[in-house]
C-alpha cells in the first residue's frame, strides 16, 4: 500500500522535474517548485510509514510550512524585486515580472 504510494510520488517527482526543464513561463516554474515541495512533504510522510517509524510526521508539517513561506517569498520577489517593500509601494516595479 505505502509502496504503491511511494512509487506514485516518485513518478510525480519525475514528471515535475521534466516540467521544470521545459516550462516556458516564470510562474510555471514557481508552481513546479511549490508542488515539488508538496511532493517532498508527501515523501517524508509516506517514508515514515514505509519504514515503520512514523516519528517524523511533524517534520513533514514543518516542510509544508516552509514550502508555503518560500513560495510567498519567491512571488514577492517576482512582484517587487525586493522582500522589504511591505507597503503598497508599487512605484519602483509596478508591472510585476518586468524586471525578470
Amino acid at each position: 500500500m505505502f509502496a504503491v504510494a511511494m512509487i506514485a510520488i516518485l513518478i510525480c517527482m519525475a514528471l515535475l522535474i521534466s516540467k521544470a526543464f521545459t516550462a516556458d513561463s516564470v510562474f510555471d516554474r514557481i508552481l513546479v517548485i511549490n508542488s515539488f515541495g508538496t511532493k517532498t512533504v508527501l515523501l517524508i510522510a509516506v517514508l515514515g510509514f514505509l519504514s515503520g517509524r512514523p516519528d517524523f510526521l511533524d517534520l513533514a508539517l514543518l516542510y509544508a510550512l516552509m514550502n508555503f513561506i518560500g513560495t510567498i517569498g519567491v512571488l514577492r520577489f517576482t512582484r517587487y524585486g525586493d522582500l522589504s517593500s511591505m507597503d503598497q509601494d508599487t512605484t519602483q516595479k509596478p508591472d510585476g515580472v518586468e524586471w525578470l
Binding site: I33, G37, M66, N67, I69, G70, G73, V74, F77, T78, D82, L83
Partner: peptide, 10 residues
C-alpha cells in the same frame, strides 16, 4: 530551498 533561492533572486 528557502534562503539561498531568495538570495539568488535578489
Amino acid at each position: 530551498a528557502g534562503i539561498s533561492t531568495i538570495l539568488m533572486l535578489a
